[in-house]
């Protein structure tokens, strides 16, 4: 038996964490702005993977040989498709319930999630079958000491990092980001300040959806098998990661996701039975000790 903690396992954990992070960001942004656990978010991830799949076959012949161009086109289409679906779901299903009791929009979100999954599964052109995801970028292995890193791992890490930096800049430096922060702190005050709340919410869904779409493409390339229910489990894990980091908190979601990825990897390597429950165990522990999550701020009780 080799050592439990070794470079290979750390790389494995980081890769898993990157994909969780991209999904978790969407969860946490939407929650931060509208206080809605958007259960359909995992399905936006799935849609991103299918959009990438379709885009690959549509453009493969056209840009034959130019891998970089193709990968870029596929990425843009995956992000755009998921973003539009997220935007649409907000417009049609969530917006009408915005000022109704919070939990009715939660049930609606569950309904949207079920609808997307069952519809994809039933619709003949998509179907319930597993599909093999095409090799958009050929895999190459890089040996670093005892560990193997494939170029896909590097791409996963890089894309996640670039998008996260971009998001942080957007939230910290732009007017839109300022508006987003304002809405998440106090919706009514933000409205009084002349912020178009619905527009900010729409943007949040667009960005969250786009990130889920990018995650869908990365997941498709890394784990080349897609099917209509592929969003459920990563969605749930990413959501837990978001809560772990302090839901509504963007750096928290990233931190939570990487902790989850690494913890899951080590726990699975230690004992597969523990690996299955570890996500939930960490979650419970963190929340019991620090109910607002790792980086979450304490919200004062309103009286």
């Amino acid at each position: 038996m080799g050592p439990l903690i070794n470079p290979q396992q750390i790389i494995n954990g980081l890769q898993l964490g990157s994909i969780y992070a991209l999904i978790a960001l969407g969860y946490t942004m939407v929650y931060g702005i509208v206080r809605l656990i958007n259960f359909a978010h995992g399905d936006f991830f799935m849609i991103g993977a299918y959009a990438a799949y379709a885009a690959f076959f549509a453009f493969n012949a056209m840009v034959a040989g130019r891998t970089g161009t193709l990968a870029f086109i596929v990425l843009v289409i995956a992000m755009a498709t998921s973003a539009s679906v997220a935007w649409l779901a907000n417009k049609l299903a969530y917006k009408p319930l915005r000022y109704k009791p919070k939990l009715s929009s939660l049930i609606t979100a569950i309904g949207v999630s079920m609808f997307i999954e069952y519809f994809f599964s039933a619709f003949p052109a998509i179907g319930a079958s597993y599909r093999a995801f095409p090799e958009i970028i050929p895999r190459r292995d890089i040996h670093i000491g005892p560990a193997v890193v494939s170029n896909l791992v590097l791409i996963d890490l890089a894309v996640a990092a670039i998008l996260m930096i971009g998001l942080t800049l957007l939230v910290r430096r732009t007017t839109l980001g300022k508006a987003m922060r304002a809405v998440s702190q106090d919706k009514d005050a933000a409205r009084l300040m002349g912020i178009d709340i619905e527009m900010v919410i729409s943007f949040t869904f667009l960005i969250g959806g786009a990130f889920a779409g990018a995650a869908g493409l990365l997941a498709g390339m890394t784990y080349p098998r897609i099917f209509p229910y592929m969003g459920i489990l990563p969605g749930l894990k990413a959501f837990i990661a978001a809560v772990l980091g302090g839901i509504g908190n963007i750096p928290g979601a990233m931190l939570g996701a990487y902790i989850m990825g690494i913890a899951e990897t080590f726990a699975s390597a230690y004992n597969s039975l523990i690996g299955e429950g570890i996500a939930f165990a960490i979650l419970i522990l963190v929340l019991l000790i620090r109910p607002t999550g790792l980086l979450g701020e304490k919200i004062a009780d309103k009286i």
Binding site: N6, Q8, Q9, N12, L16, Y223, R225, A269, S272, E276
Partner: peptide
């Protein structure tokens, strides 16, 4: 490995 997993590298390593 848990049902529905896509990453098996921890176990495989």
């Amino acid at each position: 490995h848990p049902s529905g997993a896509t990453d098996f590298k921890a176990q495989l390593t």
